[in-house]
Amino acid sequence: MIKAENVTKIFTGRGVVVRAVDGVSTTVDKGEVVVVIGPSGSGKSTFIRCINGLEMFEEGHVYIDGVDIVDKKTNINKIRAEVGMVFQQFNLFPHKTVLENLTLAQMRVRKRKKKEAQDKARMLLVKVGIGEKENEYPSRLSGGQQQRVAIARALAMDPKVMLFDEPTSALDPEMVGEVLDVMKTLAKEGMTMMVVTHEMGFAREVADRVLFMDEGKMVEEGTPEHFFIAPREDRTKLFLKQVL
């Protein structure tokens, strides 16, 4: 489903060169849930943003369903419609109602009729537990509700893969659970997911595989059991000791 090959992203600015992502390769199979962990600044966000081309990278390739997103002939908008993304800061459209947040891209990108898009949107809003808020503007919702709307907005495109970049990091602690529950349901339904998170409980419970990144490199990759019981690398051990 996703295949990343030697992805390298270099930021240059004010004379400093940062290899934010440094030769990372991995694959995510259909139905698999992969959790990416690592200290702040280790390149997790940059890496996940390379997967849907929000960040264009200097070296390497990313294949979505076999299509190389780096290829000039690839229509990146088509690819992105297949790859849902959920951001730390929700990024809902503040000038649109909850329902419009969910229908806009369906109509613009998937070319669905308004009625069809609204039916789909309402079904998803019920699914994420905010069916009664469709006419509210995002600013009227709590953080947890906003993030669930953001998840529903991504799902409305019928993506093949969902990417999550620290979806619960901006939330008050009491709202983390409601968002994680939605993500767990998705995972159980067989959605292919790549999740950057600091929620180790989620990683242990839901992940099929865990990636540990540090300083732009993928240091270790394995099952949750491997990670939380017997990590191999010293840096992984150190990190896990700090967060657990």
């Binding site: 849907n52 929000l54 908008n77 088509k78 690819i79 992105r80 419609a81 297949e82 790859v83 849902g84 993304m85 951001f87 800061q89 990024n91 809902l92 459209f93 806009l104 891209a105 613009r108 990108v109 953001a150 907005r153 991504a154 495109m157």
Partner: peptide, 12 residues
Amino acid sequence: GQMEAARSLGMS
């Protein structure tokens, strides 16, 4: 983030 959210949904 607004631009990124829109682009991530496949909008041009």
